[in-house]
Amino acid sequence: MRRADRLFQIVQYLRGGRLLTARILAERLEVSERTIYRDIADLIGSGVPIDGEAGIGYLMRAGYDLPPLMFSRDEIAALVTGARMVRSFGGADMALAAEEALTKIAAVLPDALRDSPATVSIHAHDAGALTGADRTMIDRLDRATAAHRKLNLRYRDADGQASERTVRPLSLWFWGKVWTLVAWCELRDDFRMFRIDRIAGAEEAGPFRPEPDKSLKAFLKSEACRREA
């Protein structure tokens, strides 16, 4: 983690109003307590209203707001481009969230960069690749993935063969033209990828508890081993 990112995270943790020790902050940020003491001193020196002392803990006085976001022009271009791609190729809720995020970012940019989002010349157009049903399905799968909810899928493969199966959704992947769902398939007792445009239905089937051998990390490891074989 970059030092600037770490300082930002410390401020975010302390804004919660709770007294936090250097040890707690060090564990969360995976650095030494000595590093936290140095970072706290630098933040106080730059005017951040942090109260406390070593061995007791730190908290931030109420009413402190972060200064305006300082994105570079290249960073703004990347954010705007990403939001436009989500708007064109993501779920309906995702597209709306991307627009709202851009509005919030533009509202807090310094005056010198306020017009930068409008000058980004990169655009994305789906040319009808996604239907309304596809966008709704993307949002549904995304919510189930985040909430660890099993899904009963009605699916058709490339040959048109229909099947029904219960899966644990793990991740959504966009391949430039199609979206796929990475999931643990209870029917096959293995990982599977499902094209979203071939999913005819997806109903929730109760919660599942994440397990290491059925996780996205395990899937990625298995894919790496397969490619190396």
Rank of each mutant, 00 (worst) to 15 (best):
residue 2 R to I: 11
residue 3 R to H: 11
residue 6 R to Q: 10
residue 7 L to P: 01
residue 7 L to A: 03
residue 8 F to C: 07
residue 13 Y to T: 02
residue 15 R to C: 05
residue 20 L to Y: 00
residue 22 A to D: 09
residue 26 A to E: 01
residue 26 A to P: 01
residue 27 E to F: 06
residue 28 R to E: 15
residue 30 E to F: 09
residue 35 T to L: 07
residue 35 T to D: 07
residue 36 I to H: 00
residue 41 A to M: 07
residue 42 D to E: 15
residue 43 L to K: 02
residue 46 S to F: 12
residue 47 G to V: 01
residue 49 P to Q: 09
residue 53 E to R: 14
residue 53 E to D: 11
residue 56 I to E: 14
residue 60 M to L: 15
residue 64 Y to K: 07
residue 70 M to C: 10
residue 72 S to Q: 06
residue 72 S to V: 02
residue 74 D to A: 15
residue 76 I to Y: 03
residue 76 I to V: 15
residue 77 A to T: 09
residue 79 L to Y: 01
residue 85 M to D: 06
residue 86 V to L: 15
residue 92 A to P: 01
residue 95 A to R: 00
residue 102 L to C: 10
residue 103 T to K: 14
residue 104 K to R: 15
residue 104 K to G: 15
residue 104 K to C: 11
residue 105 I to Q: 03
residue 111 D to I: 10
residue 113 L to N: 04
residue 115 D to G: 08
residue 115 D to T: 13
residue 120 V to F: 05
residue 124 A to Y: 04
residue 131 T to D: 10
residue 135 R to D: 00
residue 137 M to C: 08
residue 139 D to V: 09
residue 140 R to K: 13
residue 141 L to Q: 05
residue 144 A to H: 04
residue 145 T to E: 08
residue 152 N to G: 10
residue 153 L to C: 07
residue 155 Y to F: 11
residue 157 D to C: 09
residue 157 D to S: 10
residue 157 D to T: 09
residue 160 G to W: 08
residue 162 A to Y: 10
residue 169 P to H: 03
residue 173 W to R: 15
residue 174 F to L: 00
residue 176 G to L: 04
residue 177 K to C: 02
residue 185 C to T: 04
residue 186 E to Q: 11
residue 187 L to E: 12
residue 191 F to M: 07
residue 194 F to H: 09
residue 198 R to M: 11
residue 198 R to G: 04
residue 201 G to R: 10
residue 206 G to E: 07
residue 208 F to T: 02
residue 211 E to Y: 01
residue 215 S to A: 06
residue 215 S to Q: 04
residue 223 E to G: 07
residue 229 A to E: 14
